[in-house]
Nucleic acid binder design. Structure first.
Lengths: 136, 136
DNA sequence: GTAACTGCAAACGCTTTGCGCGAAA
DNA sequence: TTTCGCGCAAAGCGTTTGCAGTTAC
């Protein structure tokens, strides 16, 4: 267990969002600036394989990470701000398993992402709020 | 409307699966071998923007296409064979909208993928059937 | 004739990897 | 000491793009 891995582990255990690799690298370097991007990639992959972390792909072409969840949840992506909200819905989960069985399969995993806009928000604009990179 | 676009459109309208770009290119060239990969990429993107096609990402790092659906459906991915099965489930759709509202959002899109293994299949093996590239 | 489209090859963005050095046990 | 992890820079992969020539209309 090296210092780099410790730092990266800490960054992710403290994260309340879903940082991409670059963000993890930035945060890790704020703690110890001798951590290379390659190491971040290698370590994140390692942690993912050990099931310490989960990798997500929310469609922007870069991987995002969060600690593997004890209590499983899915994500709602605010397409205006890029914000990511976690939610659980036992009912939907249940129906997924049923649907899989109906098709002759045993469900072993799933990906559910809801893309949505704020309810109150009536702005007609097409442009999403300036893409931040750091958010969620 | 050029010959290339006609061929690519035909390839996708005849497809019963969810080909990736390389597969589309291969099939298009079987009809007319003067179609470059760049044109395939450009045309698929164009068709996607016009909502003639839908682009999917099933997690293998390459885009897959199918014709935009009149009647919306989601996908179940057979993780053993790579096969992709389409399904519809009104109940799940409904619950997604409800969940989004509960979180203060208006649902505008979603992605639901079920990863599963055949029910009958009791093989303990970890290795998926040789990855084909052409399948589904 | 002009605007739109194409093929080619180079570039891109994210991610992985070969290698020689350095730290962990 | 021996193994494992590191940083660096180069390569890999799917995808996009600049450019000059070609095609549609």
């Amino acid at each position: 267990m090296t210092g780099q891995r410790r730092v990266i582990a800490r960054v992710l255990s403290e994260a309340v969002d879903h940082p991409n690799v670059e963000a993890v690298h930035r945060r890790a370097n704020a703690i110890d600036n001798r951590i290379s991007l390659a190491t971040v990639y290698r370590t994140l992959r390692l942690f993912e394989e050990i099931n310490i972390l989960e990798r997500h792909d929310f469609g922007d072409g870069r991987a995002r990470y969060e600690k593997a969840d004890q209590d499983h949840h899915d994500h709602l992506i605010d397409v205006k701000s890029g914000k990511v909200i976690e939610f659980q819905n036992r009912q939907i989960e249940q129906l997924q398993a049923v649907e899989a069985e109906r098709l002759g399969y045993k469900l072993i995993g799933h990906r559910l992402e809801l893309y949505a806009v704020p309810l109150a928000d009536d702005t007609p604009g097409d442009t999403p709020d300036e893409t931040p990179d750091e958010e969620d």
